[in-house]
Simulated assay, not measured.
Amino acid sequence: MKQLFTMLLLCGMAFGVNAQEVAKKDTPEEQVLDTTVVLTLDHTIKSLYDVISGESGEKRNWKQFKFLFHPNAKLIPGGRDDFGDYKVLYMDPKAYIKQSGPWLEEHGFFEKEIHRKTEMFGNMAHVFSTYESFHSEADEESFMRGINSIQLFNDSKRWWIINIFWSQETQINPIPKSYLP
């Protein structure tokens, strides 16, 4: 079960290229914070994918990552454990960084959004974001796919990620055609 959740944590979020490239520096004090990425729903999602993606050895901008999330936000990987039972793990952004950050930076990890369905009501949004994961931007084939269920809140000043609940595709749980390009 521990191996499954480790893989789920590492595979979680699909993140494309942000129109305003966020600089990735070596130390938190040097990391650039782009406060404009949360002004639109689209830029918030794109920044989410961008900030966790990078080549092996490339530091991530965890300051930017934390900025995307509401203070009470949760990241929730879901899947089956070694016994076939469905499980979820609840983390805040700091726990995600601690558990997944070293692996992402050591092995290289890129997630790319390949399809999106968005529903909105007032100041809340729900995004089903289908992703593919790669170890390098140069990889032609993904090693994993899945869906991120992202809930967001707009406080009239910016978008906040409230929760991300995700699951990877498996043989017994393929991604439905309606969530593919």
Rank of each mutant, 00 (worst) to 15 (best):
93 P>I: 01
123 N>K: 07
158 R>E: 12
139 D>H: 01
47 S>N: 09
151 Q>M: 14
121 F>M: 10
131 Y>H: 05
42 D>V: 09
89 L>V: 08
166 W>A: 14
34 D>I: 11
179 Y>D: 02
155 D>P: 12
30 E>C: 03
12 G>Y: 03
168 Q>N: 13
18 N>V: 14
143 F>S: 02
123 N>A: 11
31 Q>C: 11
58 E>A: 14
130 T>Y: 00
145 R>L: 00
90 Y>A: 14
153 F>M: 14
149 S>K: 06
137 E>D: 07
160 W>S: 11
53 S>I: 04
85 D>H: 11
105 E>V: 11
86 Y>R: 12
38 V>M: 15
75 L>E: 12
45 I>T: 03
48 L>I: 06
93 P>Q: 01
162 I>V: 15
45 I>W: 00
139 D>Q: 01
78 G>P: 01
168 Q>H: 13
150 I>R: 08
66 K>V: 08
50 D>P: 02
61 N>S: 06
159 W>E: 10
37 V>G: 02
135 H>T: 00
113 E>W: 08
119 E>M: 10
150 I>D: 11
1 M>C: 06
81 D>F: 07
125 A>R: 00
105 E>N: 04
153 F>E: 12
66 K>M: 09
148 N>T: 08
47 S>A: 14
151 Q>F: 14
92 D>C: 05
124 M>E: 05
16 G>Y: 10
180 L>K: 00
151 Q>A: 13
63 K>I: 11
4 L>C: 08
57 G>S: 06
54 G>C: 05
15 F>N: 15
26 D>A: 15
89 L>E: 09
11 C>G: 14
36 T>C: 11
135 H>Y: 03
129 S>R: 01
145 R>D: 02
42 D>I: 03
94 K>L: 08
24 K>R: 15
9 L>H: 05
61 N>P: 06
152 L>A: 14
155 D>Q: 15
129 S>N: 06
31 Q>M: 13
20 Q>G: 07
110 F>K: 01
54 G>D: 02
112 K>S: 02
32 V>N: 08
75 L>G: 04
10 L>P: 00
96 Y>K: 11
49 Y>D: 08
6 T>R: 09
41 L>G: 05
101 G>M: 09
116 R>T: 13
39 L>F: 13
130 T>L: 00
160 W>R: 13
95 A>L: 10
16 G>S: 12
166 W>K: 10
21 E>Y: 12
112 K>V: 03
133 S>I: 00
88 V>M: 10
94 K>N: 15
118 T>Y: 03
37 V>F: 03
21 E>D: 15
173 N>Q: 10
31 Q>W: 04
